[in-house]
């Protein structure tokens, strides 16, 4: 469907927030779902495939969604040039999002751009009367984005940076290990090695863990079987059965 750019703002070097007027998506979206975005200029079909991006924020009242993306290649580079008023074609909301776990302290863990889906999730958890702790990790202090948005929702935010220039020096997994208790429910998105380490930590602590996975996609709607993720019972589709899985459902090393 066609959506319209409201704003496209650079938040840090190479990291942007894109706000789109997309009433239907905003009305239907659940935290953890994604949209499949056409980045090719109209008629050019270049780049050929769409790009999957998590729904970062969502306002059904205003009919808008926000995407948070890092420029890593051609598709995201093209997105960074969008201007207010430009049209963007997207499919969505797609996939299975996070399940809100009642009666446990929510701990949200994001590695790099993996924090993208967590803001929308934090809002929904707040609306459900929960108070999430948010742990986010970045490579460098100058990559730190969106932490004030979590704070504004009333979340307790802790930051880890690998260069130590902001917050805790080290990786976000270490930060989690300090916090984790069997009373927690953990919601995570980030690189595979991070998720794999979290799975071990949560298993030991007895805390349920949901992970949002990335895989290269063709269709994004479940038809091509391109986005396979291994499980003990064969492959599942990240775009359809995921992108959010219970950690024990999927093989994170595979």
């Amino acid at each position: 469907m066609l959506t319209t750019v409201r704003k496209n703002t650079m938040l840090a070097d190479g990291i942007y927030r894109l706000i789109l007027s997309a009433p239907q998506v905003a009305a239907d979206a659940e935290p953890g779902q994604f949209v499949h975005v056409q980045t090719a200029p109209q008629m050019s079909r270049d780049p050929f495939l769409r790009r999957p991006l998590s729904i970062h924020e969502c306002s059904p009242q205003e009919g808008t969604i926000a995407l948070l993306y890092e420029v890593v290649g051609r598709g995201t580079h093209l997105l960074s040039h969008l201007q207010p008023g430009d049209e963007v074609d997207l499919l969505g909301p797609l996939g299975r999002g996070f399940t809100l776990v009642p009666g446990r302290r929510p701990v949200l863990v994001g590695g790099g751009m993996g924090l993208a889906p967590l803001l929308f999730l934090a809002r929904r958890l707040r609306e459900a009367g929960q108070r999430p702790a948010v742990l986010v990790g970045f490579r460098r202090g100058r990559d730190v984005v969106a932490s004030e948005d979590f704070a504004a929702l009333g979340c307790q935010v802790e930051i880890a940076t690998e260069d130590g220039s902001v917050g805790f020096r080290g990786v976000v997994t270490t930060l989690l290990e300090k916090h984790l208790s069997s009373e927690d429910a953990v919601y995570a998105c980030g690189p595979r090695p991070m998720l794999s380490a979290l799975k071990d930590a949560c298993q030991q602590a007895g805390a349920p863990l949901q992970v949002s996975l990335e895989e290269r996609m063709g269709c994004g709607i479940g038809a091509c079987l391109g986005c396979a993720c291994p499980t003990p019972n064969g492959y599942v589709r990240v775009c359809t059965e995921g992108p959010v899985f219970w950690a024990e459902e999927v093989d994170l090393h595979g």
Partner: peptide
């Protein structure tokens, strides 16, 4: 079962 991932890579004008 199909092949191990990654299974898709975009290339110029296709995949």
């Amino acid at each position: 079962g199909g092949n191990r991932p990654p299974r898709i890579v975009e290339t110029p004008a296709g995949l």
